[in-house]
Design a protein around this nucleic acid. Structure first.
Length: 566
RNA sequence: GCGCCCGUAGCUCAGCUGGAUAGAGCGUUCGCCUCCGGAGCGAAAGGUCACAGGUUCGAAUCCUGUCGGGCGUACCA
């Protein structure tokens, strides 16, 4: 589609004299109006003419020069219609030539994108909330991979902080009462909740916890550190199970503890920039010059220990030195907006020139009907349970609709997990989403399984064609006239990928997938592929194969499997 | 209180960074399997784009205010 757009831009430059970059080519509201459109409003002032008159005049001029594209003036717009056979042959040809790489490119070559994603906390279960960061971050990374960027996916594990002092305290007091081996994370969660219930009554708990964390931060390899190590190992084992199911891998997995040795140097560096001061006994960076009333960033507490912000600053310096990134994307919930504003605020005050490359890719909170999820109060839905139930549900449907399916269990997992992942990527990432079981377990309408089903149907047609030996004839591209809207949709995929990358917005891909799937379903129910005139069957089969390939590619970017049968 | 984000069909959401008659899915109602898979397809009903002003050829989109919601607001992460 880009090729046609470029030709139009060049032709429009010739007839208007405007630079190609200033010409905005749009998609017509209704596909029946045309494949591409140019609004003439922008020319009205300079030409002192009404837009409809300009459109009519330009359309005539363009038709003199354009070959294979027809320009029609419709009111203030010029609508362009690419010759149907040319359109089909060009777009399908592109998809066939590029295969699984269709939609990708190499414009990212030489550029590095760091993506900070997932970042679960040790000793806490992965909730459906962590799903968002993991799934959105992984999709953003894959989208950039496809465009040729060097990407670095970093899982920044929350393995540090005062809560580990608390956990050690809780384990020391009540550890004998729980079973850590069979389900370590749920046992630890119970301890954590209990701790917070009792902390109010018993001030010695908080004191002990503070001492524990100080010992941990001192580096002493005693009881506290040993306990902490054990917690980390138990938790990572559980997390890896989930990452395997989601098909997510990381290029770098580091805990916050990794940055422990860098903290002093980080604080010194910020002090050397002359932006720190003492306030109420704590070491801070004042940020009121960045934005009125912005709270200061705390680097050291009164007791000298560091905070989340200190460790994140150490991490961002470390990452910049290691990767010299072009963008560093933090895929972290919107409830941490202030934290990243402060992080960037400190960098700004230090006059660090790469500060704009650090971006907070915020996403909406996952909420339960009962309110915000909270590990402290136990108001959470565990990710593992969601995946299990979705796969189970998919299994039931397979048993009912396709009982002879060979690898039913494997497909049920792909469909169930696909449904959960797709559901999470469906909406614009900044919107809050409410977790509703029946919504997650729905496989009809705008869902992942619907997209997977479309893919499976296309695969099925191709299998039948293969078995019947159809599709060898030369295709009659003109026979795909009725498929033009679908073909245009497929042709737009590369620009959708680019937009999704620029906006770090995977939902642009899901939207495209759903629209394409809907249009494909409509098309193949109206146009039988097999058993037609051989030239027609050939053309339709080429479209089916191209569409299947593009759909599979899009689903791959999202991290959703594209089964051949389901 | 202050700061940031948000308000589009009964519900969940799109709306291409200011353009054509505001579109989907779910739900509701009606159709469609002698025909490549009904996790599907076709159709109907459903809208004062929260409200009030403003900017201009033109606003769901930009600005201001009001109302309603979410998140955050220095020693948690």
């Amino acid at each position: 589609m880009q090729a046609f757009e470029n030709r139009l831009r060049a032709a429009l430059t010739d007839v208007t004299g405007l630079p190609a970059d200033d010409l905005r080519i749009e998609n017509p509201r209704d596909p029946s109006m045309g494949d591409l459109a140019f609004p003439c409003f922008v020319l009205a002032k300079a030409r002192k003419q009404a837009p409809p008159a300009i459109a009519a005049e330009l359309a005539d001029a363009l038709n003199e020069t354009l070959e294979g594209i027809e320009a029609v003036a419709t009111g203030p717009y010029i609508n362009f219609r690419v010759d149907r056979a040319l359109l089909a042959e060009t777009i399908i040809g592109e998809i066939e030539a590029q295969g699984a790489r269709y939609g990708g490119g190499d414009e990212g070559a030489g550029k590095t994108i760091v993506v900070d994603l997932s970042s679960p906390n040790i000793a806490k279960p992965m909730s459906v909330g962590h799903l968002r960061s993991t799934v959105i971050g992984a999709a953003i990374q894959r989208i950039h991979d496809a465009l040729g960027y060097k990407t670095v996916g970093i899982n920044h594990i929350g393995d540090w902080g005062i809560q580990f002092g608390k956990l050690v305290t809780a384990l020391d007091r009540w550890g004998a009462e729980v079973d850590l081996e069979s389900d370590p994370i749920k046992a630890l969660l119970a301890l954590y909740v209990r701790y917070h219930e009792e902390e109010g009554e018993d001030p010695t708990l908080a004191e002990q916890s503070a001492r524990n964390f100080q010992e941990l931060e001192s580096g002493a390899d005693g009881h506290v550190r040993q306990t902490w190590k054990r917690l980390t190992e138990l938790s990572m084992r559980e997390f890896d199970k989930i990452y395997t199911r989601l098909g997510v891998t990381f290029d770098e997995v580091r805990g916050e503890a990794f940055y422990e040795p860098y903290l002093d140097a980080t604080v010194e560096r910020i002090e050397a920039a002359g932006v720190t001061e003492m306030s109420e006994g704590a070491l801070i960076v004042d940020l009121s010059s960045i934005r009125k009333k912005m709270p200061p960033c705390l680097l050291r507490k009164t007791d000298g220990t560091t905070l989340y912000a200190t460790r994140d600053l150490a991490a961002v310096f470390h990452r910049h030195e290691l990767y010299d990134f072009d963008r560093c994307l933090y895929v972290v919930g919107g409830d941490q907006r202030l934290h990243f504003e402060q992080l960037k605020g400190v960098l700004k005050r230090m006059e660090i020139d790469w500060e704009p490359k650090v971006e907070h890719i915020a996403f909406g909170m996952m909420k339960l009907p009962e309110g915000k999820m909270s590990t402290r109060t136990g108001n959470v839905v565990f990710l593992e349970d969601v995946l299990d139930r979705a796969a189970e549900e998919a299994g039931k449907i397979i048993a009912e609709k396709n009982p002879d399916l060979a690898n039913a269990a494997e497909i049920a997992e792909q469909v169930g997990v696909g449904a959960v992942v797709f559901n999470d990527l469906k909406r614009e990432r900044e919107k809050d989403i409410q977790f509703v079981w029946e919504e997650v377990l729905t496989f009809e309408g705008e869902t992942g399984p619907y997209a997977q089903y479309t893919h499976a149907r296309l695969a099925s047609i191709l299998r039948k064609a293969e078995a019947a030996g159809e599709g060898d004839a030369d295709p009659d591209w003109a026979a795909l006239e009725d498929a033009a809207p679908v073909i245009v949709r497929l042709g737009r995929f590369p620009s959708v990928v680019r937009s999704a990358a620029a906006n770090a917005e995977p939902s642009e891909i899901t939207s495209w997938v759903l629209t394409a799937a809907r249009e494909l379903n409509a098309w193949y129910t109206q146009h039988r592929v097999l058993g037609q005139d051989p030239a027609v069957t050939s053309a339709r089969l080429r479209l089916v194969a191209a569409a299947k390939s593009a759909l599979a590619g899009a689903l791959a970017l999202l991290g959703v499997a594209a089964p051949e049968e389901m």
